[in-house]
Design a protein around this nucleic acid. Structure first.
Lengths: 353, 353
DNA sequence: CTGAAAGCGCTTACAG
DNA sequence: CTGAAAGCGCTTACAG
């Protein structure tokens, strides 16, 4: 680690060459008004010639900016720790950028209580953040909130679920349809001519249904595209209590059943696994998300494939995207679909969510 | 974005409270000698009380440090563009940290020419870098080089392949054995009782063989562990020319063959795919790496699974690890096994290598 | 063992 | 339209 050569650099050198003060150079660099066209041109030419790029650290230091990023996502519930992962990613990213004066303002809502979304959204708006990370689970409530955010010009990143026609700064999350197709492909590898399939949509709340629907559509599309005509039955389960689930499920597994595979369209696959295991049914089970219970099912071979879309990375990228946007570092993609990862018993140990 | 409150912070505030100059505070912060035990204690107490952490940007700015990271990896060859990915990752990471005065010193060697490794290694050492990223493909040559690097105290990160007992600052790469097990699991899903399997190790050079061997071992281990006794035949192919490959391969696919699956232990799976396709053999094909030719085989359904270990991320993490080490930001893991990703026709579009 | 001063490269009032 | 000066939080000689 040696010192740089001590010649003049940066604004000073530009100022020297242009025969102006560094203040004027600064004005040109930031396109501020109050500079004659002539000096502006001269200075820009020198900047060009020198290939000058401003020193971010010096700039940040002098500005003493402190920017607040607000986060509004579901809280992790006892039923599922899914939302701990995006939060982890948000915190990791924050650790990397907080030295630039970025602070977080975290808000969590209850996925079972719409009112909690409204309340946190309201609180959040009071603080006038410089950027927002939103998981828009409730469509109507989100739409109302989004319009307010837009009105105040706060840049916004959606994670985990998109809402059409809202055009946030960026959407970072899964392509649900495609993940359904992937599930279908995995199952298709091991499908005999007589085998049937079950699609299980489990959700107490109706408002999340369209997500599950997208996955199911992708799933069915795959077989259509490949002219595979095995029978597929859909099961919509609203009562997800253990015994209700068990009786519903068993009704579809009669003595002489031909069901070879079950596709559970969300992270509740472990509940299905338990029942299938209990009754010793020999089926291939595919579901979603790298959760503790699900990993356990992978280990004991009751779930065979988990599809996962890097929830942690979604949180990480959301912060980084806002950082890049607010500090003018690099460009921002309007849509970032996460890779669709396949997790099995043999590769989950190295997976990092 | 508002200004911070204008109270004193950092070294100045500490100095004020301790009734010393900021110079003395600086000495204590960096454990430099020349401070009485008494003042040291007093200052440390205040630092503790304030929960002070130094401002990295200010520190970096004042230091004007420029640190050089040397990179020694294979060059991408016409046969395979694999090594473009780690390089991509290295460049992305560099873009993120170059504002901190980090520069790269890139060196590439030819995987078919050991002498090229020696030569580049020699050149690299002349420049006395502050850190090194090494892909140690040739074991003996690497060992020699590593001992020199160690002697000069340069911190070193291995990527893509490990060398036992060298204890670099960090190894970032795959667990080959485990990836072989994963390949076995994928194949096992679709294996009938009479089905046989083929393991194909393709390599002109002997020195890379132990890598392929590790994968094969993992592959075989899986079946042992699960008491699956389908026949597995190994094919070691040194002459990888198209026609030689074809005739060797065909010898193992007689008219009444029972070979259901072929596991190619490296990225040359597309060469096998071509032959299998040409002769209309109906087998499941599993291989390695997210390369253009391989993706094409995924698309036309001649290769079914590609196993991939994020070469780009390996490069990215290598730079970040050295950065963290040299700038004392965060901790460094001695071994970082990459996730073992499964790529199929239905998820490769969102994969980012 | 300690302090005062200059400086890193940029930004921000303020003065003219 | 332009310049001179102070300052961001830290580091580095240098002086004592």
């Amino acid at each position: 680690m040696r010192k740089k050569a001590p010649e003049l650099t940066g604004v000073k050198e530009i100022a020297r060459r242009a025969n102006v003060s560094i203040g004027t150079v600064d004005r040109v660099i930031h396109n501020r008004k109050g500079v004659s066209e002539q000096t502006r041109k001269k200075i820009n030419a020198i900047i060009e010639e020198l290939g000058y790029t401003p020193n971010t650290m010096a700039s940040l230091l002098a500005k003493k900016k402190v920017v607040t990023l607000a986060v509004l996502i579901p809280k992790a519930s006892p039923q599922t720790d899914y939302w701990t992962y995006p939060l982890d990613g948000i915190n990791v990213a924050h650790a990397e950028v907080k030295q630039f004066g970025i602070q977080l303002d975290l808000h969590f809502y209850d996925l079972n209580v719409k009112a909690s979304f409204r309340k946190e959204a309201e609180k959040l708006l009071q603080t006038k953040p410089d950027g927002l990370i939103l998981a828009p689970s409730f469509v109507d409530e989100s739409l109302e909130f989004i319009s307010k955010v837009k009105a105040s010009g706060i840049p916004m990143v959606f994670i985990n679920a998109d809402i059409p026609h809202q055009e946030p700064l960026s959407y970072i999350g899964p392509d649900l349809f495609q993940s359904g197709k992937l599930a279908a492909q995995l199952i298709s590898f091991m499908l005999g001519p007589q085998d049937e399939m079950l699609v299980v949509n489990m959700s107490t709340a109706l408002e999340n249904d369209h997500h599950l629907r997208r996955k199911e559509l992708g799933f069915r599309r795959y077989f259509e595209e490949h002219a595979i005509f095995n029978k597929i039955t859909t099961l919509d389960i609203k009562n997800t209590a253990a015994d209700a689930l068990e009786s519903t499920l068993l009704r579809h597994f009669p003595k002489q059943h031909h069901i070879r595979a079950v596709f559970v369209t969300n992270s509740r696959v472990s509940q299905v696994a338990q029942i299938i295991n209990k009754h010793n049914l020999d089926v291939l089970l595919v579901g979603y998300d790298f959760l503790k219970e699900n990993i356990r099912c992978l280990s004991n071979n009751t779930v065979h494939f988990l599809i996962c879309q890097r929830p942690k990375e979604q949180g990480y990228l959301a912060v980084m995207t806002l950082y890049r946007h607010l500090f003018n570092t690099g460009t921002v993609e309007p849509t970032v679909y996460m890779p669709i990862d396949i997790i099995t018993r043999e590769n989950f140990i190295f997976y990092k969510a």
